[in-house]
Design a protein around this nucleic acid. Structure first.
Length: 283
DNA sequence: CGGCCACCCTGATGGC
DNA sequence: TGCCATCAGGGTGGCC
């Protein structure tokens, strides 16, 4: 489920518990998720100190004192739970083991981090920190949407000539890394661009104009996630699934929220994914 | 290469 | 508290 803002919120929530702390033990309850876990993962994690927690696109990267980096991907249904620690002003007792608790880390200081993933589209891997960027999942990624390398000229150049719907192009992690179905819908709604328009048919200004809207949508969502970390909603110790109000996503049949627009939100399916948009104001 | 589609898996939801 | 169909926010592999 999580897109970039949710993953960033999980990363920020893990930071006070993990960064600088040592992993006392790792329990691995199955051989893998989407792919097999790396050989001897539990042993390679045990005793390691977490020196830094980073994020690249929708991946969390934990740099370890052993010289390895742990890559964590939440997939569609992956969740991170913290227990045995203070979070959002509450102390969270350890819960009973739950279905789909696949990896459990006991951290120095009494905290426990549990990776739960019902659909098992998530992943974990270990690689040398020095060459982490060369990991097959990371090497192919486009620029971070909030980074300096992502600007109007870049996006206009990448969309130029593409005979694919702009919706699919923005979901393409090679072009820009971290957007998912929800935030692409939100961005195109703010841009007044119909999701079915071909990427290559956008004017250079339209393409470049997507960049500040992408930054705006993601930044607002990250801020909402940051607020939720201090919130009672974190009382269950689960990170990243904060309340966020979408303007068009999942609002099929409801009034368009654009000022002065009298349209009704519609849903179409593109590449097997739902696209929500207003046929009236998204031309 | 570019662009679709099925597929990996389980759970939530809504109609009957 | 039944049964079935549908759908879900991600990403890969195969096919044309």
């Amino acid at each position: 489920m999580p897109e970039l803002p949710e993953v960033e919120t999980v990363r920020r929530g893990l930071e006070p518990v993990l960064t600088g702390g040592r992993i006392l033990s790792a329990r691995v309850n199955r051989e893998g998720l989407r792919w097999p876990f790396p050989e001897g993962m539990a042993d390679r994690l045990t005793g390691a100190r977490v020196d830094a927690l980073r994020r690249r696109s929708k991946y969390i990267l934990a740099d370890l004192s052993t010289g390895e980096t742990l890559l964590i991907h939440l997939g569609m249904s992956g969740r991170m739970l913290i227990s045995g620690a203070q979070l959002g002003g509450f102390h969270h007792d350890h819960p009973a083991p739950a279905k789909h608790d696949h990896v459990v880390l006991e951290v120095e200081g009494g905290a426990r981090v549990t990776f739960n993933d019902a659909r098992r589209f998530g992943a974990m891997d270990l690689m040398p920190t020095a060459t982490a960027g060369a990991h097959p999942l990371l090497a192919v990624l486009g620029p971070e949407p909030l980074g300096n390398a992502f600007d109007g000229d870049y996006l206009a150049a990448r969309l130029k000539g593409r005979r694919t719907p702009v919706k699919a192009a923005l979901l393409d992690q090679h072009i820009v890394a971290g957007l998912g179905n929800i935030y692409v819908c939100e961005v195109l709604w703010r841009a007044h661009i119909a999701p079915a328009r071909l990427a290559g048919d956008l004017s250079p200004d339209e393409a470049a104009g997507l960049v500040p809207l992408i930054r705006e949508v993601l930044t607002e969502a990250i801020d909402a996630g940051g607020s939720s970390l201090k919130d009672y909603r974190q009382a269950d110790g689960e990170l990243g699934y904060f309340q966020h109000s979408f303007r068009v996503y999942d609002r099929e049949g409801q009034n368009c929220l654009a000022p002065g627009c009298t349209g009704t939100v519609a849903r179409i399916v593109q590449s097997g994914r739902s696209s929500f948009f207003c046929p009236h104001c998204q031309g």
